[in-house]
Design a protein around this nucleic acid. Structure first.
Lengths: 341, 341
DNA sequence: TTGAAAGCGCTAACAC
DNA sequence: GTGTTAGCGCTTTCAA
């Protein structure tokens, strides 16, 4: 049984009072240099570690922030988490990371877990299946600071940070058009997600700007967010067997991009015929075959921004009523091939 | 300021004592059905959540386990974490995940963080740079349950689980030999890691079994574990310009595999000439170009096994002195190409 | 069946 | 400069 040294133990051993020991250890004033030295030396010797649970109970603070993301194995989210960590650690906070695997049940459980763990605040990117936000709303109403990132929602008023999904989708679609493609399909992410609609709008705007009529049959939705490979393959298959099949596909998410590439490869499509572009933060997307042009989000920066917002909320003495939604730019990485004009 | 409902609040509101409320809520005996119903109903109404920090202080248990891995963005580790979560949640534990980015400084900080957070136990896969285990040893000596997985160490006696790295490397090397390759290079991971040596031994054994002399110049070590791309490129470049250049490369880790493929592609090598195989748990390794045969570890199962071992340690009333090191099988996925005989 | 009181480890207000 | 005490939220004797 793990039984750490307590302040009381030290006080007893040194024939002092617990409060004196506490003062010495927490480096406050009102203590003589000698006593302090005796105490700190002894504390080091017995490897004293302050018990953060007791501290948490005292201060009603846990100095931890909860992170809820759909998937750790997704480069975008792991990059964002790295960004969060960088700032959190600097500020003496640590992070409790959980993943939902895009399940709203798991999300509910995880958020409850974190709230019960008394995290001082929550960073969350919504899972694709969630449509009931009442639980989050309740926590937020109870005063738990929450910041949304990437997959944000309108139902709760707080700080938010996301990418310029509209602009990213627009730029990519525009370049597909400029490279000579006219029948551009869109493989969209789960419809509940904020990012899905923004990307759809960017795609539509580019079509409109270049006088290409929008054709609903060229838009397919992956309700499972790419977690269900078959869903993606079915969509792709349908396109490939259309009389006027698409000459380009724009893909609304990282995971769907992968599934789409896998499907195209399996279906033996001709890479010259259909050009592919999509959102992706994978660090090996450039090694994939068939190749794909990609829109990259500033994931690390998004994580940093989100946690900075959260710390502002946590540290604020008075309730904040003015909230900001920050939009980060995206970068387009274009893969040239022979057919491009 | 987030101010949750306490037992005291309920007691006050219902004109009862805190202890009665506690009994009703914790479902113990010695309480009348009616009082219990009144209390639980009211608790539900005001959305009472038991404060786990206070509970932790009382029980000296946090019901959380710490996980320390080198990198979340690595498929192997995110799969292992998913395995850990599956069992941990079932048992009422939750997980605090941290990553070290393969830095021993970060590792030290994270482990200290977790120990201070009073995790009930620790699951750790060592970062590649670590050679001083004294802090872990100290924690372990103090009674903190620790289980090592994947990248294990000999210096601390406890439960461990890892893959059959020897066997995996042997099988892969053997198949390279059987497919007609004779000059098989090895791109090895950081030398401090347990897995590095085991994979080296498997490689050597396969060469020996097929009477192929071991040539030291065909083994290169990535001291940075593939985090430094240049290190990998330099190694590959040297091989490509050797008079008798290798006709196959076996790679000792996921991340190095990626860097190696990137380097080969950049250096415009001929995929017919050099066959590549390596350890990888990436779910898109089959889409990479140039293609690679890969040894896959049972990551999910490893996570499950590790946490089961840890829970055994945590729940044990008496100190455990008999420890087991479990070895999981690997799976070889072979990519055929034309030149294979 | 219920209430009062003590205590988990820590800190801070208040004595001395 | 140091000790005493109370209290954070909860459970658990012990007493009523």
């Amino acid at each position: 049984m793990y039984k750490p040294v307590t302040i009381k133990d030290i006080a007893l051993a040194l024939n002092l009072s617990p409060s004196t020991v506490s003062r010495a250890l927490s480096d406050t004033y009102g203590i003589s240099a000698e006593t302090k030295k005796i105490i700190t030396d002894y504390a080091k010797k017995v490897n004293y570690q302050t018990n953060p649970i007791a501290l948490g109970l005292k201060n009603m603070r846990s100095y931890s922030i909860g992170i809820v993301v759909p998937e750790l194995a997704n480069s975008f989210f792991s990059q964002a988490i790295a960004g969060v960590e960088s700032i959190a650690y600097e500020n003496g906070y640590h992070t409790i990371i959980t993943q939902t695997h895009d399940s709203s049940e798991r999300e509910l459980i995880n958020v409850k877990h974190l709230a019960q763990r008394s995290v001082d605040g929550l960073l969350i990117s919504m899972s694709s299946g969630t449509s009931d936000y009442s639980f989050l709303k309740q926590l937020h109403d109870n005063g738990l600071p929450i910041v949304f990132f990437d997959r944000i929602i309108n139902e709760i008023e707080t700080f938010k940070v996301t990418s310029n999904n509209f602009g990213g989708a627009f730029k990519a679609t525009e370049l597909l058009i400029k490279s000579g493609r006219k029948k551009i399909a869109l493989l969209a992410n789960a419809p509940q997600l904020s990012i899905t609609n923004e990307r759809l709008l960017g795609y539509k705007k580019a079509l409109a700007d270049y006088q290409i009529p929008f054709r609903p049959q060229l838009v397919k939705t992956c309700y499972k967010g790419g977690n269900d490979y078959q869903e993606v393959e079915d969509a792709v298959k349908e396109w490939l067997f259309m009389p006027e099949k698409p000459d380009a596909i724009f893909i609304g998410s990282d995971r769907i991009s992968i599934s789409c590439i896998r499907a195209l490869k399996k279906l033996n499509f001709d890479p010259q015929e259909i050009k592919i572009a999509g959102f992706s933060n994978s660090d090996i997307v450039d090694l994939l075959q068939p190749s794909i042009s990609y829109v990259r989000q500033k994931a690390f920066e998004m994580g940093r921004t989100a946690v900075e917002m959260l710390l502002k909320l946590i540290k604020s003495k008075y309730p904040i009523t003015e909230f900001e939604t920050k939009i980060l730019d995206t970068e387009l990485h274009w893969m040239n091939d022979q057919k491009d004009s």
